[in-house]
């Protein structure tokens, strides 16, 4: 049984391996010029050089700091917004239509407006990332709270729990799976947007490294950037997955039983 699972996992590697092999073939035989598609091995060397020189780490640090700032602000505001809309019906009536309106605007559509307001500095990036991080967090929190079964609420009402105690002991734990999903989507959104923000304007950061490399005709560095972004995003998602298992492990055990 276990061996079977192991092999079915390996299946997911087949297509990437095939892609890398064809990529290698296309570059080696110059079917596609190496200026457009450098060899996978060249990419590895470039990555190693960037790693050794500390260039990659310095720029990753900048990007991650921005993600951290934007995500922290965005997710907190999103959580509060989702909570107040979920808990108080009148607030929902006032805010939800407005929230829904802003939800329809792709975050990148804010770029020209934000640039006029904030310029190309650090504030622009933090605000831009927060804008994107708020939406999924608020939505998932709101949905999670709305999804608390009415029977639970009836029971705690019968016990005459106060509002805050009700929120802490029933609503929050029950909405937690949805909230954590919101957190994950929010973080992945923040990571995508930091790259977007840096492609527009930045002094440092992984997105900026790619823009500079494009201007200097270093296709390999551009592609290393893509791979590093993918791997970082993957790691971040895995970390939040672990967090989810830690907090919601009980739910999985329950489901298995």
């Amino acid at each position: 049984m276990k061996i079977h699972v192991f092999f079915s996992r390996l299946l997911g590697l087949l297509i990437p391996l095939f892609l890398v092999a064809s990529w290698h073939y296309l570059s080696v035989h110059e079917v596609v010029p190496t200026t457009l598609l450098p060899l996978p091995s060249v990419l590895f060397d470039t990555w190693w050089d960037m790693q050794k020189s500390g260039e990659l780490l310095l720029n990753m640090k900048m990007s991650l700091l921005r993600v951290g700032g934007g995500f922290l602000v965005g997710a907190s505001v999103g959580f509060l917004l989702g909570t107040v809309m979920g808990v108080w019906k009148p607030v929902e009536l006032y805010l939800y239509p407005v929230f829904n309106f802003f939800r329809q605007v792709p975050v990148v559509a804010w770029i020209p407006f934000l640039l006029i307001w904030l310029g190309i500095g650090e504030w622009f990036k933090i605000v831009f990332i927060s804008c994107g991080a708020i939406i999924p967090m608020a939505l998932k929190t709101f949905e999670g709270i709305r999804g608390v079964p009415t029977s639970y609420l009836e029971v705690v009402r019968a016990f005459e729990y106060g509002k805050f105690r009700m929120f802490r002991t029933v609503i929050l734990p029950s909405a937690l799976p949805s909230i954590l999903t919101g957190l994950r989507i929010s973080l992945s959104e923040a990571w995508m947007l930091v790259i977007g923000a840096e492609l527009v304007a930045a002094g440092e950061g992984i997105g900026n490294v790619m823009i500079i490399a494009r201007r200097l005709f270093q296709t390999d560095v551009v592609l290393v950037g893509v791979v590093v972004i993918a791997v970082t995003g993957f790691i971040m998602d895995k970390l939040l997955d672990l967090l989810e298992t830690r907090f919601l492990g009980w739910r999985r055990i329950q489901n298995v039983q």
């Binding site: 010029p33 190496t34 200026t35 457009l36 494009r214 200097l216 005709f217 270093q218 296709t219």
Partner: peptide, 26 residues
């Protein structure tokens, strides 16, 4: 980029763009 993706045949460059391009194999 135009020369690399075959949308241009001729071009003008200052020292940095032409040397960077040639150095990277264009």
């Amino acid at each position: 980029e135009g020369l690399a993706n075959n949308s241009l045949d001729f071009g003008f460059h200052g020292d940095l763009p032409v040397l960077a391009a040639r150095s990277n194999g264009l």
